[in-house]
Amino acid sequence: MTDLAPLTALGAAAPRVTRLGSFTLSENADLALASLALRRGGETPAPFGLALPGPAGWTAGEGVAAFWTGPGQWMVEAPGRAAEDFAAALRAEAPGASVTEQTDGWTAVEIVSAAGEGLAERLLAKLVNLDPASLVPGRARRTGLEHMGVFVIRRAPEHFAVLGARSSAASLWHALEAAAGRIAAA
């Protein structure tokens, strides 16, 4: 075990959590990520028993989840496993596929509305140009947010995650916090 101390994408030892009205924004710093891409003609695997979703889909299994990122491509999530070599674990589950470590390529912010899905959708309307009807629970989309490329995952009616480039974590957090704060203030 290394004795180097990790920092979260927001540059602190501990993940950031902010409550704004009925919203809770949390930096999901322990989320391990690895990309999975099929080789030409390769069979779609079922890593960790997970049925990989189709276009715009997100599926959660036992301790792992995956969302579609392109034809024959997925991002596999493993909450709480950022310190491990999760890519190696995934590679073992998907022999013959291309797997790339992505854990620190991203910052993940989990946003939960304690006042139901309507409020969550009000916030989504301020963030991304996606029709809520196409972003129901179980959907994940790649889109732009304040000039940043992000993935938005609807994990539950009142819960969505925004994944953005790790290097712009501070800008992304600011954008999310400002939008949620305005709705909370209204």
């Binding site: 990309s35 992505q102 854990t103 620190d104 390529g105 991203w106 290097s167």
Partner: peptide, 14 residues
Amino acid sequence: ELDVQLISTTDAWA
């Protein structure tokens, strides 16, 4: 027709 997979890892590695 080529068997190639790409992904950016710019941010993933310091």
